[in-house]
Structure formats: structure tokens, C-alpha cells
Amino acid sequence: MPRENYQERLDELREDVVAMGETVCDRLDDAVEAAVTGDEELARSVIETDHEVNETYLALEDECTELLALQQPVAGDLRLVAASFKIITDLERVADLATNVAAYGGPEGGVHDAVDVRDLGVGAREMVADAVDAYAARDPDACREIAARDDEFDERCRRASEAVVRELLEADRARNAARDGPAPTDGEALETSLDEVSQALLAVRDLERIADHAVNVAARTLYMIENDDELIY
């Protein structure tokens, strides 16, 4: 086949993007675990190894730029490079958000119980993993399915946020009662509760954003496969 080196570079780009996606999913697994269990060491590991994902991102960005500049890809090859260029940005952002999620665990294991971080985390992680699989397998149906799943995930996040807000109001009422009532209440415990609630809201927001990035990956993958931009918005 002519341009063998070029074809090998395209194959390697595809494999490297998939590998980056798998790494990001592993980090997300660890981040959710750290958030749920409060495992500080695991959280630190997620945060401290984020630079590896950043370096992979920069290396792949360079490779895409070089392929565009030197090989002038067209048609399906062009869509592969253009889509990959965008997808690695989404994956890098997922890794950044994973560091946030890991940090929400806190020393006391502290996202409020009103949010099932593991459940939402697993859901977001599955969407990212499925999007990366769709990219690897060039599966347009999977891309559309991931995009369709996002509405359901958003709804789960909305319900989780509502539950947290209810808890926030409860905590506020409890604090008011403590201030006004005859019996002294443990103020430190209330502050902890408020921290947990805010951490939970942030965690929900970040997990929802992770799912949005998964949809972006699926949208760019569909463009790559079929030149179809219906999911890009």
C-alpha cells in the first residue's frame, strides 16, 4: 500500500487516542473510589498523575498538527485527525474533572450521603468508556446511543442535586434551630454537613460535565465515521 508510513501514523494516532481514553477511565474509577471512600492516598494519586494525561494530550495534539501540516490528510483520514484533535481535548478535560471528583472525598470521606457518587460516577465513567469504544470500533449506532443516554443521565444529576439542596435546607433549618433553641447544638457538625452538601453539588456538576464530554467524544466520532455532524452542537 502506498504511503505506508502515513497509514501507520494514522493507525497509531487512533490507538493512542484509545489508550488515552482508557487511562482517563482508570483515573475516573480511582477518583470516584476516592470520593466515596475518602481514600486520601488514592485521591492524591489521581491529582498527581494528571500531568501524565496532560503530556499525552500535548503529544497527540502535536501529532495531529504534524499530520495536518506534513501529510495533508483528506476525506476519512482528515476526519480521523480532526475528530481526534477534538476528542483528546474532551478526554483531557475529563481527567481534569476526575481530579476534582477525587478531591471531594476529603479527609473524612466527605461527599454528602444524599448523593450516590458511586452510582453517578459509574454512569459517567460508562459513557466515557463507551464513547472511547465507539471511536475504537467506529460504531455510529453506539455514538447515537451515548448521546441519547445523556438526557437520562442529566435527569439523574438533576434529581441528585435536588436531594442535596433539600439536605442543605434541612441543615440550614437545623442550624437556625440550634441558634434559636434552648439546647446548644454541635456547630462543628453543622459546618461539616454544609461542606458535604456543597461538595456533593460540585461533584454532581462535575460528573454531569464528564458525561457531556463523553457525548462530545461520541459526536466527533460519528462525524469521523459518517461525516455526520448531527450530534455536534
Partner: peptide, 20 residues
């Protein structure tokens, strides 16, 4: 259209250098 999404696989193969 030709350079982004040609209809014919033979055309895609030609313009991407897979044969020529």
C-alpha cells in the same frame, strides 16, 4: 464533498493515497 466525504470508496482510496 470530494475531499471531505467522497461517495466512492475508490475515490477515497485514491485521494488518501491508498492506491495510485
Amino acid at each position: 464533498k470530494i475531499f471531505e466525504d467522497p461517495e466512492e470508496q475508490r475515490v477515497e482510496d485514491y485521494i488518501t493515497g491508498k492506491f495510485g
